[in-house]
């Protein structure tokens, strides 16, 4: 038994998430395939979006997979870091936007 929750080898196990719910799992992979394939956006652009989301969502498997995917599509470390900063600033903005609630309460209650 592994002594850690996240094992890099488990990335190869991802296709087996259809176990115990084959039909639903298959539908997920169909959706996943269409959503990440080149369309109006290129595969390269979608891989950078996926990398940024992976870091924001703290998923080590996705970060591993999409860093390699970005490398394989010719994306540089500088470009990947730019994408991650977009994710980081969106996360920070999301937090700061919630300060609105705090400000509204403070303004209502303070004399």
């Amino acid at each position: 038994m592994s002594n850690q929750y996240y094992d890099p080898k488990d990335l190869a196990d991802f296709p087996k998430i259809t176990d115990y719910a084959t039909e639903t799992g298959d539908k997920f992979f169909e959706y996943y395939g269409k959503a990440t394939a080149a369309g109006a956006l290129s595969e390269r652009e979608k891989s950078l979006i996926a990398l940024a989301v992976s870091t924001v969502r703290h998923c080590p498997y996705c970060i591993d997979a999409y860093t390699n995917k970005c490398l394989s599509l010719g994306v540089t470390g500088d470009e990947m870091m730019e994408a991650i900063h977009v994710g980081a600033t969106m996360a920070a903005g999301d937090i700061l936007a919630h300060a609105t609630q705090m400000r509204k309460i403070v303004k209502k209650k303070e004399m």
């Binding site: 080149a38 290129s42 595969e43 390269r44 390699n68 490398l71 394989s72 599509l73 010719g74």
Partner: peptide, 20 residues
């Protein structure tokens, strides 16, 4: 000829060709 400058496998040839 494109070959990865590192220890990863190449991505979609069509995507790479577009970018090249």
């Amino acid at each position: 000829v494109h070959n990865p400058v590192g220890t990863y496998v190449p991505g979609c040839q069509q995507s790479l060709e577009f970018e090249y």
